[in-house]
Structures are given as C-alpha cells and as structure tokens.
C-alpha cells in the first residue's frame, strides 16, 4: 500500500517544519508532499533549505486548487491512498493510521477524520458558532444524500484510488471539503468517519475568518443543494 500525505501550505512558515518533522519521526517510509500555495512568507525557502519534497504553485490557487494538485500528483505516481493533512499542525500524525484503516480493510472508499464523534479523543472542539455551521451543513447533506456526515468541513481525510482519480479530474475550488464529500456520495462510493483528535492552531491564521463564515455557509449550502439536483 503506497500512502501519500498531501499537505497544503499557505503562509505556514511557523508550522510547516514542525509538521514535516513530526511525520518523519512517526514513520520514515511515509511519503508526503507539501503543496506551497504561492505563500508570501518564507515557507518556500524553509521547504528548499530542509530538502522537503514539495510542489511550488506559481500562483495562489486557494485550498481547493492546492489540494487538487496533491491528488493529481498522487494519481500520476500511482498511490493507493492519499491523505489530506493540514500544514498548520492541527492534525495529529498518529491518527493517520486510524484514518487509513477502513480503506486498507476495504470497508470504505473515503474516510473522514471527525472531531465530534467522540468527545474524549479531541481536546479541540472549536467554538459554538463553528459547530452550529457544521450542524447546518451536516443536516443539508443528510437531506440531500441520506447519509450522516458529522464533520463535513474536516480537512483530515483519506481517499482510495477511485476517489483520487475523481478528485484529480474535478475538485471544487472555493469551499472544497463539503462539496467534494457530496460529489463522492453522489457517485455511490462508501464514506465512513473515524474519530480523531485535533489540536488548536499552533500559529498562523485560519483560512476562514469570522466575517467570511456567513458567505461560506450560503455558498456551501447552495453548492450542495445544486450538486444533489443533478
């Protein structure tokens, strides 16, 4: 089983080295690739100095475009499993095993790491507003696809070969996680969730600001509803 970690990074000079170190400490044979999404800080220099495998996007594409580049890379290099892993240190490397297991055991095509399934495993539960937003998106997916996804915006996900192919060809660019989950469900692939723990951000800024969240909710809801009408 060839597993690839896709690590999108935008202005992550404080975290990216720590994240890569933690991966190497965890398992030396684990492949990973950092997608530098046109960072304006020293992320690229850090990647080059420390000889970290990376692709440097010549323009900023946003999280969706960056992650898709990773899936394209995984597809071209014939990986069996691709795992999305954040470059800001929120995801814990020891959970990669849990997240890959359902796919290795052929129980699912895609596996989402959820921070809400089991309250004890995660020290980071995020704010009330974020949880409310997640519940709304979760509800819309439930109505449209008849499948309960507790954490649709989680960026900690594993995908098998079929899903890698789909994502390499077509991946929503703006608000990718919920929309791509719906895409997978619509194609009748199996999606499961496993509890993972997530930490608070260790530095840098979140890609979603408070003022953008209403905009985010509207666009995501619309995207899911229109997607399910096809």
């Amino acid at each position: 089983m060839k597993i690839l970690l896709i690590i999108p990074a935008y202005n992550e000079e404080e975290n990216i080295l720590k994240v890569c170190k933690s991966i190497e400490e965890y398992d030396k044979n684990l492949d990973y690739i950092v997608i530098n999404d046109g960072s304006k800080d020293k992320t690229l220099e850090i990647l080059e100095e420390n000889n970290i495998k990376h692709i440097n996007l010549i323009h900023n594409l946003g999280i969706g475009g960056a992650v898709q580049t990773g899936y394209k890379y995984a597809y071209e290099n014939d990986y069996d499993i691709a795992v999305q892993f954040d470059g800001d240190g929120q995801h814990e490397i020891k959970c990669v095993k849990d997240i890959c297991n359902p796919i290795i055991e052929n129980k699912a095509n895609m596996c989402i790491g959820t921070r809400y399934l089991d309250k004890k495993t995660s020290e980071f539960q995020s704010t009330f507003m974020r949880r409310l937003g997640k519940n709304i998106i979760s509800f819309i997916i439930k109505v449209c696809c008849h499948k309960k996804i507790t954490d649709p915006t989680s960026g900690f996900r594993a995908a098998d070969k079929n899903i890698i192919r789909i994502f390499a060809e077509n991946y929503p660019t703006d608000y990718p996680e919920p929309e791509s989950t719906v895409e997978v469900l619509k194609n009748k692939y199996q999606v499961v969730e496993v509890p993972v723990s997530m930490k608070e951000r260790q530095g840098g800024k979140s890609s979603i600001s408070v003022f953008k969240s209403v905009d985010y909710m509207i666009k995501v809801s619309l995207a899911i509803i229109i997607d399910s009408l096809r």
Partner: peptide, 11 residues
C-alpha cells in the same frame, strides 16, 4: 487553475 497546477508540477 489547471494550467497553474500542471506548470507547477512540470517545473
């Protein structure tokens, strides 16, 4: 987007 991705990977 496709162009940027492909060019970056080629580079």
């Amino acid at each position: 987007v496709t162009l940027i991705q492909e060019v970056s990977m080629l580079k």
